[in-house]
Structures are given as structure tokens and as C-alpha cells.
Design a protein around this nucleic acid. Sequence first.
RNA 1: GGACGAAUAGCGCAGCUGGUUCAGAGCAUCUGCCUUACAAGCAGAGGGUCGGGGGUUCGAAUCCCUCUUCGUCCACCA
Length: 903
Amino acid sequence: MEIASKYSPAEVEGKWYEYWMEHKLFASKPDGREAYTIVIPPPNVTGVLHMGHVLNETIQDILVRRARTEGKNACWVPGTDHASIATEAKVVNRLAQQGIKKADLTREEFLKHAWAWTEEHGGIILKQLRRLGCSCDWDRTSFTMDEKRSESVIKVFCDLYNKGLIYRGVRMVNWDPKALTALSDEEVIYKEEHTKLYYMKYYVADCTEADDKAWTKELETQAEGGNVIHKDAKGYYAVVATTRPETVMGDVAMCINPADPKNRWLSGHHVIVPMKGRVIPVIEDDYVEIEFGTGCLKVTPAHDVNDYMLGEKYNLEAIDIFNDDATLSEAAGLYVGQDRFEVRKQIAIDMQDAGLMEKIEDYDNKIGCSERTGVPIEPKLSMQWFLKMEHLAEIALKPVMDDDIKFYPVKYKNTYRHWLENIKDWCISRQLWWGHRIPAYYLPTGGFVVAETAEKALELAKEKTGNKNLTSSDLRQDEDALDTWFSSWLWPISLFDGINNPGNEEIRYYYPTADLVTGPDIIFFWVARMIMAGYEYEGKMPFRNVYFTGIVRDKLGRKMSKSLGNSPDPIELIEKFGADGVRMGMMLSAPAGNDILFDESLCEQGRNFNNKIWNAFRLVQGWQVDGTAKAGDCQKKAVEWFAALLREKNAEMKDLYGKYRLSEALMLVYNLFWDEFSSWYLEMVKPAYGQPIDKETYDATIRFFDALIKMLHPFMPFITEELWQHIAERKEGESIMTETLTMDAPSDKDAKTVEEVEQLKALITAVRGIRAQKNISPKETLTLQVTAGDPLAAYAAVTMKMANISSIDTVNQKDDTAATFLVGTTEYAVPMGNLIDVEAETAKLVAEQQRLEGFLAGIEKKLGNERFVANAPAAVVEMERKKKADAESKIAAIKESLKKLGK
RNA sequence: GGACGAAUAGCGCAGCUGGUUCAGAGCAUCUGCCUUACAAGCAGAGGGUCGGGGGUUCGAAUCCCUCUUCGUCCACCA
């Protein structure tokens, strides 16, 4: 059968994925085997595959497939996340394009649109995962808002409420004026921006005659370290620096530091809010930084977290001057209905015109922005639901600190600890419709009940009010939905229905899951909270190991983004290089925790490797097998060596997997296949053209090939499955995927064999090097001379074949015209006849001699150092002595050779 | 402003508790080859003194201090 010289992924990938699906090879049910579970970090239901997913999912697939080769019952559960803000925003946008405003729809109507959108776009990403070869148990596909998951969320909400961990209250929250919802602290990202610092005049409202006299005097003396008093035609004034002049309408006080000498004169006075004209008190608190701005702080409790704290402390009124969309409200009294940023510009102009602006400076500031919509968040007082975190943080900290749950890389333990130790209550309500609706029901008489269903709520309501005549229409369910992460944090439990159906067979079998693979950006959002929920609801960790991937960047180190256009479409890459090639390209440069600089050329390398495997197979597959022939010495030695090498490398692989050093594991098997197997082993056993191969060697080669593709399978599932069918007697329904890879541990003898062959390779390479230097064709046969005691004598047949040597002669005297070289301390010589270039050969030897003499001098110096000999361990000293002896004998050999050359 | 991490061949990286894997593989580069498995390949070669400085030690890429540069996270300086 003629096989193409180039591997064509497109022809095999689809076929095998179908085969795996058809035979339910990814499916898992609890059984007697050890479970290996991964739950997918659910991508947004309406998302599409990007390079970050490719990295993440490839790693998970490698781990899952590896677990299968170890004989474990591997279960990878896929699913998607409803991503409330992101999805709702997309739906709102689409409706807007159709001329529909969300405000004009009822909740039910809106949700109908949202579900339609979800069905239209949902699951695209899951289909794309199949192209990548992901071996998820698709029958288990879940959605954070499907029935079971929703039920779990509501149950947990009620439970936490009943435990007193959930409360409702008016607090300062992060308000997203675009999405019109509160956000958790984690959803706020800070961006550096160039802004202005406005210095505004607050005239003193209550300047007495005595004040005037005293201040006038101080103004004249201008004493160092004394009051800094401002006065103009309109009177005395304080200067307040702010980045947000538009909030002056909400000012209820001015605050100075009691220890601030500059502003002592203002103590106990009142000042007039510019533009607004309201008279406000000057209060004193050491929260105010003396050195910042003028040391005077305007206090706007409704619009700043810290001002809010001051407001609480000094019992100040909070005037909310913004509407939900961050336009100015009636309460502002000025600029009503205008946007906050327009007002900022306008009020600055107006103040300047009114002589109320002292100056404006440039200022670099950090602005908190909504993670989803990108708009600057507005600190806002509002009624929200919160989850107390103290207890949950406590139960989640210890297991990570104690390494019950291991983080890879470990540096994230610090990050984790710091967050948990400084945690604040979690704002879990969102003013959105797309999500799990909060199961709180308000009573007509005030107050509320929390219950899993409307029916139960009614019962509770009757009890609470004592009114038996209440009907469900008297109750009004809370309009808010829950934060998306309030469902994601249950994912490892809810996927196995452990909330609704505690202690069921599946949760007992699959939980705790084995490994979690995710990005460090969601360590707080998701990882930490899953750990909390895991201990709260299962009493156990949700996963044993967390593998944090890096961020995928382009080769210039920039984040991949749509706007930069530097993010390749994974599906296009797969079409170009094959899924196996893309997977390998991704893994080649993806050590845990480091950012990945992705470059298409890595996929090319992956594709080339596929081709290499393919061609190695073509070679083996084309051999004629002679059942009666005996294996030659060369073949025997080769088989013996490669068997030893495989055992060693397999053990190394195991170690690397254990440390989650997957790129190194891939590199190892890449070298093993390409260099050791293809370049060395196959060349050793390869029969002469047109000749058959003996059965013994052939069978061994097939066994090796089989082991190699099994080692490769987790990384490159498609090509390995394709080739496995040709070398194994596969029955319908069987797959390389479910084959276990068993191999003996390497022995000391293996180590010795491998080491000998390393020397042998050095010998062969040296001969080839001589050919390259002297321009001797590989086809031209040479002879080799060695002085007595050749340690590689047992491999003579291999040497002769690989270096094209006709005879290896043990001699006392090397040929005068030989090119010589050393392997270890053994000197070899290749007689060159008239091909020898005496000058070049001499130069080479002299250089080598000089190098060795330098080396020797270093060692002698070391050994001459009494303190070294006295203090260093005996083994180290012994080693140095051996090095010295070796160097000396090498130098002697070179001198001998030089003499032969007449130098 | 804190905390953490990183700096090793042209590039992206590995080098665990100091001395035989010690200066490493991969890609790239250079030279020679279309040798009938593979030019998406084969054979061979060059290249770094381990960010700077100081210290500990018989001995430092490895431990300590310091500086520089980058990155990440956290933080209420309006």
C-alpha cells in the first residue's frame, strides 16, 4: 500500500473524533477503578474559542488522557457559564439594534430574548472543543443555569440565609452605570488615567471680627509652619483639591487633619460649597492626609467609600446626586439630567467664571472601571444582598496553606492568603434579569421571607405574618439576580448533583476532583470561592491540585485581543496545522504559571513532528519480515538499548507529569521519538535496501512504536489513534485512548546500557564529523583503529553500520596518517591515506591540547589548595583526581599523535 | 505605597536543598547533503561566564546583601 509522504490531519481527525463519540469512549460511570475527575472552567455560553481556551483545554485534555493510560476512570465534565453581565449586555445591545429598549420589556419578555440568544450562540464553543480533540464526557454537558444547577444555587442561597451568612442592607457598592448593576470588588479593575486635579474655593461662612483680626495678622507675618490662610476680595476661603468637581453638590462637610498646622484656622468654622452655596461644617479626622493637595478634603458620603466612612463616623447626611445611569439627579439641584463627565467639564468652566476655581493641575489617577462594560464605576449607596465571608475565608485558608490543595506554581499561595486575610463581604446581588433570581419574597406588611419556591415562601409568609389569607400574589419576589460566580462556585459539586442530592453515588465517586486548570486571573472570583463552597457543602476540598496557566500573548509579548488583531483564530490554525500540531505548538512553550508567547511557527513545529511520526511509521510499515532470519548483532544491541532507554524515559515522564511540567514531558517524548528512536534506533535496525528484517527485531520495533505513540497520545490524540490501528490488532470499539501503558521500572543495568550507548553515539558522531570536515561521502567506507581495551567493543557491529566502517582494528601503533579523536579516554583513529591534511590535523590537536592543559592547570590549582583537600568531601576530591588523571592521559595521547604527524 | 516573581546562548526557557548531568536542550543561525521513511528532511558546526556590584565559602548560575530593569497582584491618598 502506498502511503503519502506527508501526514494529512484533515483526513483523519474528524473520523477519529466520530469514532470516539460513537463508541462512547469519553463516557464515564462510577466503577471499581480510581476516579480521575476534571471539571471544565465553564466558558461563557455565548463565547467563541480563543487561544487562552486552547491552552487551557489542551492541558486538561492531556491530563485526562494521561489518566486513562494509567488505567484510571477519567471523567472530564464540560459545560458553559451563563455569564450574567456579559450575556445580558450582549442581549441588550442586540435588542437596541432592533430598536427595542430593555426598559420597555417585562422581565419575562426579556428572558425570552436572552434564551433565544443563548440557544443561537450557545454551545458553539463546545463544538469547537471537539475540533481540538477534547475528550469530555459530553453526555454530562451542563449549564450554570440549567435546572439542576439553578436548583442548587437557590438551595444554597436559602441555606446560607438560614445560617445567618446572607444579609441585606444599604451599603456603598461599586455601581456600573452602564450595566445598571452593582458589582463585587473583584469586578472592578483599576486603570491609570491622566486626569486633572481641581483646586476649588470654599469661602468661610462664619468669619467673626475676631477671626478677621487674627487672620489678617497671620497673613502679614506668614509664619513658617503656621496657618496657610487664603483671602481675596470676597473673603477668606479654604482650598479643596479634588478630581471630581461634579460631586460638590453632594458635599456635606469639609474635613481637615487635626494635626495639620496649615488648616488650624479653619477648625470649628463653616464653609460654603462652591456653586451650590450650601453651608457645611469643617470636621476633623486624621484620615485626611496633610500632605495631599491642600490638606482639605471635601466629604461626599454618597459618592466615595471613604467619605462614606467619615459620614457614618460623624453622622453626616448622604446626598445622592446621581441617577443610576450617572446623570445628575434632582437632588443635585444643578446640572440635572446631564452626564457626570459633561458636568465635570462644565462645572470647572462655570467655577472659573465665578472665580471659585483657584487652579487646575494635571494629575495621574487610578480609576476603578467595570470589568465587563469598561465604564468607570460609581461608588453608590444602595440596597444589596451580601454574603458574610469571615467564616468561609477561614475554612478555605488552611487547606491551601497546608498543601492539602496544591497550587502550581506555589507562588499563588501568597496571593491567595493575602486575599483571604483581607476579605470583605461579597456583594452577591446584581440588578440584572439574566441569572438566578434571588429567592426573597417581600411581604405586603413589610419585611421578607427567603424560600426555595414561591409555595414555600407563601407558607413562611403566612407563619411570619399570622395572616392565613395571604396569597402568592400578595408576595413580591426580589427583582435582582445573583452574581454569576454565586453559581460557578458550586460547579464541582453541582455537576454531580451534590447539593440537591447529597451523598449520591456520583458525588461520592467523583468528588473531590483531581485537578483544576485555570488562569490566575480568576483565583479570587472562582478558585477561592469553590474551595469555600467545597468545604461548606461537602466538607472536603473541591480539587486536589490547581494548575494555573499563563496568559497567552503574541510573540511580541502583547496580550491577545480583538482590537489588536493579534489573536489567531484557533479553528483556522487547526485547519492549517492539524489539531495535534496546534496542541503541540501550544504546549511547546507553556510552562505552568509563565506567560506564553505564542507564535504560529510553534504549530509548524508541531505539524513537522506529526510528519516525522508519520514517516517513521511509513518506514516500519514498509519492511518485509523474514520469519526465519536471525537478528544480527547490530539489531540485538539496538533493541537491548532502546528497551532500556524507554524504561528510563518512561520513568522520567512519570516524574514530570507528577510535577505538572507538561511542556517538559512533551519535549522529552519529542526527543525520544525524533532523535533516539528515529535518528538512532531506526537507523541501527533498518535493513539494507530491498532486504527483509528478521521477525525478532521487527516485533521489538513494533512494541517500541506502540509504547511511543501511547506516550504521545495525550499530547497528540489523533495521529496516535490513526497509527495505532495499523500496528495493533484493534477490534471495533477499541482505542489507543483506553489502552494502559505499563512498563517496568528502569534497572541499574539499563542505566549502564544507556550510558554506553551515549559513548557509542559520541564515537559515531566523531567519525561523521571527520567525514564532514574532510569532505568524505557517507557512502565511502572507512576503517577505524583503536588501541587495546576498547570499552565499546561489544557495539562494533553498530559502529560499523552507523559510521560506515568496514573494520575496527585493535592496533598498537596508529596509522601515521590517521585523524584521531578521543571518546572518554579512549583514543580512536581513522586512517586517511592521502586525504590527511597534516596542517589542519595538527592545528586541531594543538588547540585541543591547549584546552586540556588549561583545564588541567585549573584542577591542579584546586588540588594544590590545602583547604580544598581538607574541607571538601572525599568523593569530590577523588573526582578531581580522576579528572586530573584523565586529562593527563588525554594530553599524552595527543602528544603521541602530534609526534606521528612529525610535529 | 506594599507584596510577590523574574533577569542564564539571537529568541522563548530548564537548571530542586552550593562540588559529574554545570553551563543545558528546543527554535533560530552557519556548513555540507534531494543518501529510495521523512527537504515539513539528513549529517555536522558555531554561540552564553549565568542583569551590575559586594559578601559568605576551599568552591557560587545556585546562599546572603545591595542596585538596576521588567512583570503580576494588592492598597482608601481625595
